[in-house]
C-alpha cells in the first residue's frame, strides 16, 4: 500500500489538488463576491509589481503612439512641402503668363496705334558677341518677314531685319555699330543718322552744326530710309558734342527701348506709312 502511494504520489497529489480546486470552486460559486483571505494577501503582495508593469506598458504605448503620431506629422509635412513647392511653381508660371500677356497687349496696342501691318515675334536668341548687337526672332519668310524690315517695341525702335529663313529672322539692333537709321529731333526737326556705339548706346551723327539739338531732346525716325515708319521713338539725347571746327555735331542718344530686356517685338511688314504715329 505504502509502495503504491510512493510510486503514484504525483498522480495522487494531483488528484487531491483537483478535488481541492473543485471544492474551492463549489464554495466560491455560492458566494461569488467574496474574496478569500489568501487571494487578498496575494493581490496585496503582487500589487506593486502589477503597478510597475502597467505603468511600463502605458509608457511604452504612449511612446509608441507619439512615435506613430510624429511619423504621421513628418509624412504630412513632406506632403505639404511638396504641395507648397508645386503651388510656388504654378504661381511662377501664372506670373510669367500674366507678364507675357501684358507685354503682348502693349505690343498689340502699339501696333494698332501705328496702323501698320505688323507681326508680333518672340526673341529666341541673342548674339553672344558683346561687340555685336543682334537678335534672332521666331518669325521668318513663312510669316512674311524678309530682309530690311523695321523691328519695333512699344517703347520704340529695336532694329531691322538683316536676314530671314523660313521660320526665323536675324535682327540688327539699333545699338549695333553697323546700324544706321534716318532720324530727326522731334522738337526742332533737325535730321541726322542714328548709329550704334560700342558702349551699347547710340549716337546721332551728321547733324549740321547750325541745327538746334540739345540734351533731353527726343529723337524719332524720319521715315525717309524706307524701312522705319515716320515718328517712332528712338531715344533721348544725353550729350551733345560740338567741336570748335567742322560742319557737324554729334549727339549721344539713350535708346528708348530696353533692348536687353525685350522678349517680344513687332516686325513691320510692307511699306511704312508717311504719317507720324500717335504715341
Amino acid at each position: 500500500m505504502l509502495e503504491f502511494v510512493r510510486r503514484n504520489r504525483v498522480v495522487l497529489a494531483s488528484g487531491s489538488l483537483l478535488l481541492v480546486a473543485l471544492l474551492l470552486l463549489s464554495t466560491g460559486a455560492r458566494n461569488r463576491q467574496r474574496l478569500d483571505p489568501l487571494s487578498a494577501i496575494l493581490l496585496e503582495i503582487l500589487r506593486p509589481a502589477q503597478t510597475v508593469g502597467a505603468a511600463a506598458m502605458r509608457s511604452a504605448q504612449h511612446g509608441w503612439r507619439r512615435y506613430v503620431a510624429l511619423a504621421g506629422v513628418q509624412r504630412e509635412n513632406d506632403l505639404l512641402q511638396q504641395r507648397v513647392h508645386e503651388l510656388e511653381q504654378q504661381l511662377g508660371r501664372i506670373a510669367e503668363i500674366e507678364a507675357t500677356a501684358a507685354r503682348l497687349e502693349q505690343l498689340l496696342a502699339f501696333d494698332a496705334g501705328l496702323h501698320l501691318d505688323g507681326v508680333p515675334a518672340q526673341i529666341i536668341g541673342r548674339d553672344s558677341d558683346p561687340w555685336a548687337g543682334a537678335l534672332t526672332i521666331n518669325r521668318g519668310e513663312r510669316s512674311g518677314v524678309v530682309k530690311n524690315m523695321a523691328v519695333l517695341s512699344p517703347q520704340g525702335v529695336v532694329g531691322q531685319t538683316t536676314a530671314a529663313t523660313a521660320h526665323s529672322a536675324r535682327v540688327l539692333l539699333l545699338t549695333d555699330h553697323n546700324s544706321g537709321i534716318d532720324a530727326m529731333v522731334q522738337r526742332s526737326r533737325a535730321r541726322g543718322i542714328v548709329q550704334g556705339a560700342l558702349d551699347g548706346g547710340c549716337v546721332m551723327k551728321y547733324v549740321q552744326r547750325g541745327e538746334d539739338i540739345d540734351v533731353g531732346d527726343r529723337i524719332i525716325t524720319s521715315g525717309l530710309d524706307g524701312i522705319f515708319p515716320k515718328g517712332v521713338d528712338i531715344g533721348t539725347v544725353t550729350h551733345v558734342t560740338r567741336g570748335t571746327r567742322g560742319l557737324l555735331q554729334v549727339a549721344e542718344v539713350k535708346p528708348s527701348a530696353a533692348i536687353d530686356r525685350l522678349e517680344e517685338v513687332l516686325v513691320v511688314r510692307g511699306a511704312p506709312t508717311a504719317s507720324e504715329p500717335t504715341p
Binding site: L25, A29, S39, L43
Partner: peptide
C-alpha cells in the same frame, strides 16, 4: 483565479488537470 477576478478553483482545476 485571484488576478482574473473569477471564482477561485476554476483555473486551479484547469492547471492541475493540464499538469496531470
Amino acid at each position: 483565479d485571484t488576478f482574473s477576478g473569477t471564482v477561485a478553483g476554476l483555473n486551479a482545476f484547469g492547471m492541475c488537470l493540464v499538469f496531470t
